[in-house]
Design a protein around this nucleic acid. Structure first.
Length: 573
RNA sequence: UGGGGCGUCGCCAAGCGGAAAGGCAUCGGUUUUUGGAGCCGACACUCGGAGGUUCGAAUCCUCCCGCCCCAGCCA
């Protein structure tokens, strides 16, 4: 797309080495045994009631990745069975996020609501078989009748209605004759089952809500448990991959499939992804958005796919992450550091290097001619020669990073200090001659330095060494930009684990966003939204959509590893 | 005290009776015009615990311990 940054969002054709995991083992065995004629067909079944997060990305990469890997097909199906919580905005965002991640479902976009008619027929079939009945108990009563974890439930007084009466009542539910909450259709299974899901689960409930796709056509809606399994069956999904909490529902799905005598997909459960220093539940993310604790679903601090996208993450790095974390059935919390590693590894090879000073300290090079400007040649990416070079203006007055100077340097500090010499990246060696301070505050406001004209390009004929190399920007040429520095959204590793009297909101990191004004080299004046750069010695940054032509806004996607910061921290400790 | 799962290095995760892969993190060294990147090396005598079977067990058996999920007309 561009040679200066890297938004090279291609269709996913990753050729990374893949690891064994229990799902691949199952699929390979099925193929070897020619189960389903060797067909592999998966699906990703989101409910359009929120934005997708990195945990969904794991599921997408798994479901879609596996199908691609084994030459199969994958569907995108919205499980839209609860009109009161679902919205069109969410289906659009979900489609956009999946496309961005690099997956194309082609013509296989489905909705559980596509099957409402068929599902209704299935329900009638079960009623006729004497396997389902209309129950007049209210929600509280149903709960009471269900029993508890250790006590069996008891039969509903409506459990033995005749087929004719059930048919009539269900038809009248369908026709809108009853109010919400007055009747439900239940499966007649076993009120004493140790698996609560089998204690005559609700199949249909009355909901007089407008559905985002079917409008007001229906006033009864199937429960997820009555829709999901059959939807997979209708789509001839061979491997129905879902998360652990549905393991208990599998016997129910299989019961429906068996009663109905329809195609039986194989359900396989895996552990959902948790990341430290963030939350992953849709409910909590919604709370953050609704209470305006973040700027929106795509706030760069959110663990949503749209948040990572805006932050500057690449789809490649997220796919790589999904592969590296593996899949298993053990509850786990992955270190956010791994995600950051995947991003750095990707961007290191692709991002153009530029110089930007985020906390400026003025430097005047006293022996450099006033008014003189030189164009200094700079390498765009030492990891990729094909990215070429560019010219950066150099002059008598420059900014360096305030942290790159210490009047009283600690041991092993090899940046600038009084009397020492450092290299200005790509330019010249300079030596600090004088420190100018504010008379009142004592704050250092300017450095007077000298340069060695022989050192142009950053090395000298006598080959003398300097220990430090600093980035810089010429003051008269510098472009101002807003820079947003992000940190973890939460200060606690597991914000979901709420202590007595606290909620996850109490663990928000007050410093998760720091906005500063930086000075960047003029080459960046024309940077486009979404472009990514490495600000040398700082990290990777991308241009935020809030940018205006003369008011660029950069997001720090991730900082560079900083071994000096580590050394200093240790010294402090 | 019901049912369903899970416990291998700080964090993920292979392993499926022949004797602990890999990645991240960490720590050394090397290299470097990013204290970045790269390169080299170190990093579980041990697999939640205890018994048992076996020539041999993380892998099989028994018991115990710990953690997660289920009592929505949510998904």
């Amino acid at each position: 797309m561009t040679d200066r940054a890297t938004p090279n969002e291609n269709e996913n054709d990753d050729k990374r080495p893949v690891g064994k995991n229990f799902i691949r083992v199952i699929i390979e065995k099925d193929i070897a045994e020619n189960k389903n004629n060797g067909r592999v067909h998966t699906r990703f079944p989101p409910e359009p009631n929120g934005y997708l997060h990195i945990g969904h990305a794991k599921s997408i990469c798994l479901n879609f990745g596996l199908a691609k890997e084994y030459g199969g097909l994958y569907n995108l199906r919205f499980d839209d069975t609860n009109p009161s919580k679902e919205e069109e905005e969410y289906v659009e965002s979900i489609k956009e996020d999946i496309r961005w991640l690099g997956f194309d479902w082609e013509d296989r976009l489905f909705y559980a609501s596509d099957y409402y008619e068929q599902l209704y027929e299935y329900a009638i079939q079960l009623i006729k078989m004497g396997k389902a009945y209309v129950c007049d108990l209210n929600a509280d009563q149903i709960r009471e009748y269900r029993g508890t974890l250790k006590e069996p439930g008891k039969d509903s007084p409506y459990r033995n209605r005749s087929v004719e009466e059930n048919l009539d009542l269900f038809e009248r539910m369908h026709a809108g004759e009853f109010d919400e909450g007055t009747h439900v259709l239940r499966a007649k299974i076993d009120m004493s089952s140790p698996n609560l899901n089998m204690r005559d689960p609700v199949m249909y409930r009355i909901l007089k809500a407008t559905h985002h796709r079917t409008g007001d056509k229906w006033c009864i809606y199937p429960m997820y448990d009555f829709a999901h399994g059959q939807s997979d069956s209708i789509e001839k999904v061979t491997h129905s991959i879902c998360t652990l909490e549905f393991e208990d529902h599998r016997p129910l799905y299989e019961w429906f499939i068996e009663q109905l005598g329809i195609f039986r997909p194989q359900q396989i459960e895996f552990a959902r992804l948790n990341l430290n220093y963030t939350v992953m539940s849709k409910r909590k993310l919604l709370t953050l958005v609704q209470r305006k604790l973040v700027s929106g679903w795509d706030d760069p601090r959110m663990p949503t796919i749209s948040g990572f996208r805006r932050r500057g993450y690449t789809p490649e790095s997220i796919r790589d992450f999904a592969e590296r974390i593996g899949v298993s059935k053990a509850d786990s919390t992955v270190d956010i550091g791994l995600l950051e590693h995947c991003l750095r590894e990707d961007l290191n090879k692709r991002a153009m290097r530029v110089m930007g000073v985020l906390d400026p300290l003025k430097v005047v090079i006293e022996n450099y001619p006033e008014g003189k400007v030189e164009d200094i040649e700079a390498v765009n990416n030492p990891e990729d020669e094909s990215m070429g070079n560019r010219m950066v203006p150099f002059s008598r007055e420059i900014y360096i990073e305030r942290d790159d100077f210490r009047e009283d340097p600690p041991k092993k500090y090899f940046r600038l200090s009084p009397g020492t010499e450092v290299r200005l990246k790509h330019a010249y060696y300079i030596r600090c001659e004088k420190v100018i301070k504010d008379e009142k505050t004592g704050e250092i406001i300017e450095l007077r330095c000298s340069y060695d004209p022989e050192s142009r390009g950053g090395f000298t004929p006598d080959a003398r060494k300097v220990k430090g190399t600093l980035h810089w920007v010429s003051i008269p040429h510098a472009v101002k930009a807003e820079v947003r520095l992000y940190d973890h959204l939460f200060i606690k590793e597991d914000p979901g684990q709420e202590e007595e009297g606290k909620t996850f909101i109490d663990y928000l990191n007050p410093h998760s966003l720091e906005v500063t004004e930086g000075f960047i080299e003029p080459n960046l004046a024309s940077a486009k939204v979404g472009e990514r750069f490495q600000f040398m010695r700082h990290g990777y940054f991308s241009v935020d959509p809030d940018s205006k032509p003369d008011a660029l806004v950069f997001n720090r996607t991730v900082s560079l590893r900083d071994s000096w910061a580590k050394i200093e921290q240790k010294a402090d400790a």
